[in-house]
């Protein structure tokens, strides 16, 4: 990689700001590898769910639990937040700090709406007696969907620290790289949700005929 040293010496101006600094761009590469491990973490949980999805034991079945209402709301909130997150990056590249912060805060609020709806959904299941102790299916369901929800929660906390840093320091190669990696993470969670939506909820509600 003969570019390595050259990039180190002179930053490449034609790249977007988050890639402009060599040391920061290396961190983006690292973050992609981190996402690969996270993807495999979810893959393992999906695999576990696939194996245990019919082990209802004495517990509730998906048909008794799942409803379209909260599911559609969650999906709308998270997919929209992915879009607003993209808008924040767009404003960042235009060097528009105000617009960037506004869209980032909208993203955070939508994410909070998602987590709140999901917590409400989980609490209602537990209220119906469907705790994860009851069956392999419920254990796998709560863990897979809950891990995603925990990721979103961590993402919200992360984004809050980014708001503070962006206000303090403005758009620099370093802060922009941080926001960019956050955006990668956020879009990644969005994609995972698409699989949860279709594979966990839709296919279970139709009795496992899909997938």
């Amino acid at each position: 990689m003969s570019q390595a040293v050259r990039r180190y010496e002179e930053t490449e101006q034609h790249l977007p700001i988050e890639f402009a600094d060599y040391h920061e761009s290396v961190k983006i590469t690292g973050f992609w590898f981190f996402l690969a491990t996270d993807l495999l973490l979810f893959a393992s949980l999906f695999g576990t769910f696939a194996v245990m999805r019919f082990d209802f034991a004495q517990g509730a079945t998906p048909a008794q639990l799942f409803h379209y209402g909260p599911l559609i709301l969650e999906t709308l909130l998270l997919l929209t937040s992915s879009f607003t997150c993209g808008l924040a990056i767009y404003q960042m590249r235009r060097n528009n700090q105000k617009g960037m912060l506004m869209w980032l805060i909208v993203t955070i609020l939508l994410g909070m709406g998602f987590v709140g709806t999901e917590v409400h959904e989980f609490v209602s299941y537990v209220g119906m007696g469907a705790t994860w102790h009851k069956s392999g299916f419920l254990s796998a369901f709560f863990t897979l969907v809950g891990t995603h929800g925990a990721h979103v929660t961590v993402g919200i906390l992360w984004a809050l620290t980014l708001v503070v840093q962006l206000v303090q320091r403005g758009i620099t190669p370093r802060t922009s790289r941080k926001l960019f990696t956050f955006a990668l993470y956020w879009h990644f969670l969005d994609i995972v949700w698409v699989f949860i939506f279709s594979f966990v909820y839709l296919s279970s509600m139709t009795g496992g005929r899909i997938a």
Binding site: D55, A57, W132, K134, S135, F142, T143
Partner: peptide, 11 residues
Amino acid sequence: SSFFTLGHGGM
């Protein structure tokens, strides 16, 4: 939870 338990549909 009941992932790998002998009862409750664990595996």
